[in-house]
Design a binder for these strands. Structure first.
Length: 888
RNA sequence: GGGCAGUUAGCUCAGUUGGUUGAGCACCGCCCUUACAAGGCGGGGGCCACAGGUUCAAGUCCUGUACUGCCCA
């Protein structure tokens, strides 16, 4: 007997040990010169200050499954790990820490503050990485990257300068989304819209010529001081006569024109709207189109400016109250309505964003989008396919991307202004003098770049670009990007644009978008809701493999994942099952690897069946992972190991193991050893730890050492072991065994109680089959006597069943509930009857017989025959039984 | 307002090309059978949201309705 394992699986030590081993052994550090088809994935970099949440756990697990599987298939696999500097988020975290010391970032000054963030990163940046380690991620730690590394920062500057020189980056005035708390511009997609209850004020604007008035509806009366027009629909008869006239801004009395534009929705509000180009996106557009004045009434802190006249110095909230009151006092308030509308919030701090006009840097995304669009699906596939439409729609309607942020933590924009001549210099390195006037008085732009700008370069910047590295040659483009659909626009589309522009090829062959993990009732997990499932806590309670298996089993394409803790607990049982199957094997295997047996010619129906099933599962699992059908892969492994290998095969070989016949025992040992090893290989990508541990414990040939499962190849197919006929024969034997068990259970006979069994086969072939496999039935059905023959004399008082035409008869002795058997038979007959009626309807249907494919019709006929046969036999048996009952 | 999903067992979800609906948990029996009680064996439970259509055949394809969720404006 080989080494024994502890009785229950204890994940903690095992996981820690393997993590350490794989890292020290550099198991996952690939050599670009090594053979094998290249396979590469870059990790979606988590925020350096972040903590692992369940979404990371899902993402990392799925990538790891793919990478481990690809290695098994002999590919040269690179998985690049790294973190993101996450500008606004990280700055917020450090500012909060400073606030506890009673300081603000301005107290420190820019340089000291940025130093402080770097310190923070030194102290806490490893946390998220350790958490990724704990998930068993087979990343190459030697290639760890950070978006603010020197190399990646150089890539950022080079990209910026080149795009600027190509007119794909420009500086300009634009209305942007302003977060007055973060004090920075936000990109359009960094604004989250939420439905909320608001008010709609109806305000009457008087016409200057005294010919009347026009009433508009607004949700934001505080912007009235910034009004520069009234707009109506050109075909709106109510207002047609007013177009071209001059209106007066309420209270302030400023003159503004009445214009017409088809943009106006005649149905909404009063059908007339006030135009405030500096404080609303749509009004901005109207302002540009109609060449209106741009008046900023609110500053970047949310305070009314001098332009707001008497409202100067008020907060925008106070201004709203006051101006509404003033309008009402003037008799120009027509009414207030309740309204549900979407309000934009900062995605980082949830402050309501304020549209704001300012000078910002932009990427001409409108020019870069078409190439990214055209690459899909020809060069890059997006999976699940239903995201393709969303991707296209977004790119078709893209606006230029605002990339400047008014914060300190991030890549500072490589642009300098000459203080002497105002010349703008954009360069990778800081210039000494102005090339235009020679002045040395140069001032660098204060802003930093949007974090997603550096993230957009991630697939090639991590591989060493702009150097022409071996890694790039070998592994760019990457094989697949695995990420959540929530960052399809933030990240994926932008990587596509940058990758195509700078590398000439899109960065991925496939994009697999996985679901969002929600709680059991479908809500998004969030700290504020208090419904988060902490992956680290789950690992601690149930082990990493349980969590990984659960996430994999849930990852069906295109669907949200509703996770609950009891599912993880449930799959822990599966990990334990594998562990105990291994314990059984170790107890029954020799010290060294069992002697090889020719599997193609092996005798024993149970071996042939198991090997056949193993071949099928090997193929199906490989295909499932190739197709990103993670849930199918997990399910296949689960069912094979538990319902076939454990429930049947291990039980079936027990007599072999206890046999005096050494040859018989040796054959069983060898098949057990092979099948368990291959099963470990199949399950390893999903649950690396328990499989590696078991693999290492299994016996190996004399003089050899146990290998590292993570370095082993996917089990080769064994065509000679594909034997569907034998597998079907085994299913007959299983059917008989189940029939006997059912009879026992339903008649209240203890499962341990041995009964006699009479089998009346349907023909000589079946008779032989049953004779040859009588031992299997005797063991698993717990029989004391088994008689097979066409002439078996069934006692009247027998329980019975029919399996594949074979009559299964269990003579009843002692105190059993005979009525129970009658009930059971009738239930069985009713079921048969129902099936027969259904199938007869089909077969008596002329058009089914003539139009359905011949093989389908044939199959149905066979089934009908079997059902009728079973029914006839069961009825006869019932009749005999009823006689016995009467004689009682 | 535009777009995309979902509706299958008590709960959470599978169901690849149309061809007798499956799993986990929960439930009900019987078993401590020397790998596993985190287990074994057996069982109950579903007009696959609703209404039409295509087809010999629809959970599966098409149309519409209802409800739920998400994204974008």
């Amino acid at each position: 007997m080989a080494d024994t394992l502890p009785k229950g699986y204890e994940p903690h030590d095992v996981e820690a040990r393997w993590c350490k081993h794989w890292e020290e052994d550099k198991t996952f550090t690939p050599d670009p010169d090594a053979p094998g088809e290249p396979y590469s994935i870059v990790i979606p970099p988590p925020n350096v200050t972040g903590a692992l949440h369940i979404g990371h756990a899902l993402n990392v697990t799925l990538i790891d499954v793919l990478c481990r599987h690809a290695r098994q298939k002999g590919k040269n696999v690179l998985w690049v790990p790294g973190t993101d500097h996450a500008g606004i988020a990280t700055q917020n975290v450090v500012e909060r820490a400073l606030a506890k010391e009673g300081k603000g970032r301005k107290d420190l000054g820019r340089e000291a503050f940025v130093d402080r963030v770097w310190e923070w990163r030194e102290d806490y940046g490893h946390r998220i990485l350790d958490q990724i380690r704990a998930l068993g991620a087979s990343v190459d730690w030697s290639r760890l990257r950070f978006t603010m590394d020197a190399g990646l920062s150089a890539a950022v500057r080079k990209v910026f300068v080149q795009l600027y020189n190509e007119d794909l980056i420009y500086k300009g005035d634009y209305i942007i989304n302003w977060c007055s708390r973060c004090h920075t511009a936000l990109a359009d997609d960094e604004v989250e819209h939420e439905q909320s209850r608001g008010k709609l004020w109806k305000v009457r604007y008087l016409l200057k010529d005294g010919s009347g008035s026009i009433t508009i509806a607004t949700t934001r009366p505080e912007t009235i001081p910034g009004d520069t027009a009234i707009c109506v629909h050109p075909e709106d008869e109510r207002y047609a006569h007013m177009v071209g006239k001059t209106a007066l801004v309420p209270v302030l009395g400023r003159e503004i024109p009445v214009i017409a534009d088809a943009y106006v929705d005649r149905e909404f509000g009063t059908g007339a709207l006030k135009v405030t180009p500096s404080h609303d996106h749509n009004d901005w557009m109207l302002g540009k189109k109609h060449d209106l004045l741009f008046i900023q009434a609110i500053d970047e802190n949310g305070i009314m400016k001098a332009e707001a006249g008497i409202y100067e110095g008020l907060t925008k909230e106070a201004c709203r109250e006051k101006i509404v009151a003033d309008i009402e006092a003037a008799g120009q308030l027509e009414g207030i309505e309740e309204l549900d509308h979407a309000v934009g919030h900062c995605y980082r701090c949830h402050t309501v964003v304020e549209p704001h006009v300012s000078t910002q840097w932009f990427v001409a995304a409108t020019k870069m989008a078409p190439a990214a669009r055209d690459a899909v699906p020809g060069m890059t596939r997006i999976l699940p396919e239903n995201w393709l439409k969303t991707y296209n729609h977004w790119l078709d309607n893209i606006r230029d991307w605002c990339i400047s942020r008014q914060i300190w933590w991030g890549h500072r924009i490589p642009a300098w202004t000459c203080e002497a001549c105002s010349h703008l210099i954009v360069a990778e390195e800081a210039p000494d003098v102005c090339p235009h006037c020679g002045s040395a008085s140069l001032k660098q732009d204060e802003d930093v770049l949007d974090t997603w700008f550096s993230s957009a370069l991630w697939p090639f910047s991590t591989m060493g670009w702009p150097e022409d590295t071996k890694d790039l040659q070998r592994w760019y483009p990457t094989s697949v990007l695995v990420t959540g659909f929530d960052i399809l626009f933030f990240w994926v589309a932008r990587m596509m644009m940058m990758g195509i522009h700078f590398m000439g090829k899109p960065p991925f062959a496939d994009v697999y978008l996985h679901a969002l993990v929600r709680d059991a009732s479908g809500r998004k997990m969030s700290k504020s809701t208090g419904n988060v499932i902490n992956p680290l806590e789950m690992i601690d309670k149930y082990g990493c493999d349980s969590l990984r298996f659960t996430l994999t089993a849930f990852a069906a394409m295109g669907r949200d994942i509703r996770l609950s803790e009891d599912r993880i607990e449930g799959y822990r049982h599966f990990v334990n099952k594998l562990w105990n199957a291994a314990r059984f094997a170790l107890m029954n295997l020799p010290e060294e690897a069992p002697a090889q047996v020719d599997l193609a010619s092996i005798q024993g129906l149970h071996h042939q069946w198991l090997l056949h099933r193993l071949e099928t599962v090997k193929q199906e699992m490989d295909q499932a992972l190739t197709d990103y059908r993670f849930n199918d892969a997990a399910q296949l492994g689960y069912k094979f190991l538990w319902n076939e290998f454990c429930d049947w095969y291990l039980e079936l070989i027990k007599p072999d193991m206890y046999s005096e016949d050494e040859q018989r025992k040796a054959a069983a040992q060898y098949v057990l050893w092979v099948a368990l090893r291959e099963t470990l290989l199949l399950l390893h990508p999903i649950m690396p730890f328990v499989t590696a541990e078991v693999w290492a414990a299994l016996p190996v040939s004399a003089g050899e050492k146990a290998t590292d499962l993570a370095r082993e190849l996917y089990p080769a197919l064994r065509p000679a072991c594909v034997r569907p006929a034998e597998a079907a024969n085994m299913e007959l034997i299983q059917g008989v065994i189940v029939a006997v068990r059912t009879i026992k259970a339903e008649l209240g006979i203890s499962p341990a109680h041995r009964v006699s069994l009479l089998l009346h086969p349907v023909d000589a072939v079946q008779q032989n089959l049953l004779e040859e496999n009588r031992d299997l039935m005797t063991t698993l059905a717990r029989l004391d006597e088994l008689t097979v023959g066409a002439d078996v004399a069934a006692p009247k008082a027998s329980a019975s069943a029919v399996i594949e035409g074979c009559q299964v008869i269990v003579p009843l002795r002692g105190a059993v509930d005979l009525n129970g058997e009658l009930v059971r038979l009738d239930k069985e007959l009713t079921k048969l009857e129902k099936d027969i009626v259904g199938i007869n309807m089909k077969l008596s249907n002329e058009s089914f017989v003539s139009r359905a494919p011949a093989d389908v019709v044939e199959r149905e006929r066979e089934r009908a025959g079997k059902l009728l046969d079973a029914k006839a036999k069961l009825e006869a048996l019932r009749a005999r039984f009823a006689e016995a009952l009467n004689e009682e």
